[in-house]
Design a binder for these strands. Structure first.
Lengths: 203, 203
DNA sequence: GTCTATACAATGATAGAC
DNA sequence: GTCTATCATTGTATAGAC
């Protein structure tokens, strides 16, 4: 044991979640968060580049997770199989504790444009990493880009559904279903043109 | 004529572009920009919510542009036709002058995480608006979401190609080609599974 | 190697005068 | 619509403490 309480980052995260829930994101100052974690503002900014990053800690790792997920797929994998491998790796990186954290973060993001901005940025960085990974496995550029959008959407929408669900279903189960559903919907929308407003299932 | 030079927003934009090109985005203060436009910092922030927004002025309009583009498509339009109508409306909203402005903004964004963040946010807001518009035209939720991603990607990538090109081709021509190319690539990737690493065109 | 104290520049908000 | 002035907060930089 060192001279300081351990896990400064974790304490800052929980202090932030508590204070944000009480006062809202904007009304809470960095100094307040630091104080609640038994630290000073200076130390907070030694651990996190900015106030928002407290809530997104760990996410930088996702870029390499998705990359190695795709890279380690079987040699003979098709483009959609490579996509599944990448998205699956993302899902398996998450530990059950993040279900609870995600549940607490969501309403904060919904109320704060600043947090929405950071979310959108992280998503775009992750999507770009997935495009690169697919392209390196010889998926053509445009296909890689479009498939990446599909996979990232399944991941985010699936993650939201997962944090909402009380059951402790694995994240990948939820996202995998979402991914398949999107692929089906897209194939049908892009395929033989169908008139809308009719129930396609009845034909 | 009033007491002030007209078009404060336009003057601020060009002052910002000049100073950013010289000193970089971060090294340029809001006060400097305001001074170069013959204004004060206070007035700058009356016109723009923050420093970044100087470069993105006008873009809030795109949300309603894409919505009415989709809404005013023919009754019998298919999902992909609705998508094209929305993206086309976006393209036709842009005036040729924005080709030059886009050319000057891009390198700034490439160097500034802060601007990348704002870009990603605008993109996500636009994509969400497109999803809503498609859904209101009875495109199923997941198909609307995935098609929106395709359309927004075509729009952004096409816009980048358009600003790079010296020719004065209409933006929609560039984006339309991109959109079709993505649809083709995606249909092929999602369709009959194909092994990679072979040239599909030679079969 | 992590924490703290202090000082500092810049953003962005606010109140009141012209 | 613009200006002056003041202000809290973010985030940085530096120096040193344990």
């Amino acid at each position: 044991m060192g001279r300081w309480e351990p896990d400064a980052r974790g304490r800052l995260l929980h202090a932030a979640l508590d204070l944000f829930a009480d006062q809202g994101y904007e009304a809470t100052t960095a100094a307040q968060i630091a104080a609640h974690a038994g630290l000073t503002k200076t130390t907070l900014f030694r651990h996190f580049a900015d106030k928002r990053e407290i809530l997104f800690q760990g996410q930088p790792a996702l870029v390499s997770v998705v990359a190695s997920g795709v890279a380690s797929a079987p040699e003979e994998a098709t483009a959609t199989e490579l996509l599944r491998a990448g998205v699956r790796a993302l899902c398996e990186w998450h530990v059950p504790e993040q279900q609870e954290i995600g549940r607490r973060i969501r309403p904060l993001v919904d109320l704060s444009p600043e947090l929405q901005e950071r979310t959108a940025f992280k998503r775009s960085v992750l999507a770009a990493a997935l495009v690169e990974a697919l392209h390196e496995r010889r998926v053509e550029r445009r296909a890689a880009a479009a498939l990446s959008d599909v996979g990232i959407r399944a991941y985010y929408d699936g993650f939201a559904a997962w944090t909402d669900a009380r059951r402790d279903e694995p994240l990948w189960d939820v996202v995998s279903e979402e991914l398949i559903a999107i692929e089906v919907a897209l194939r049908s929308a892009l395929g033989a043109p169908q008139r809308l407003g009719q129930d396609a299932a009845t034909r």
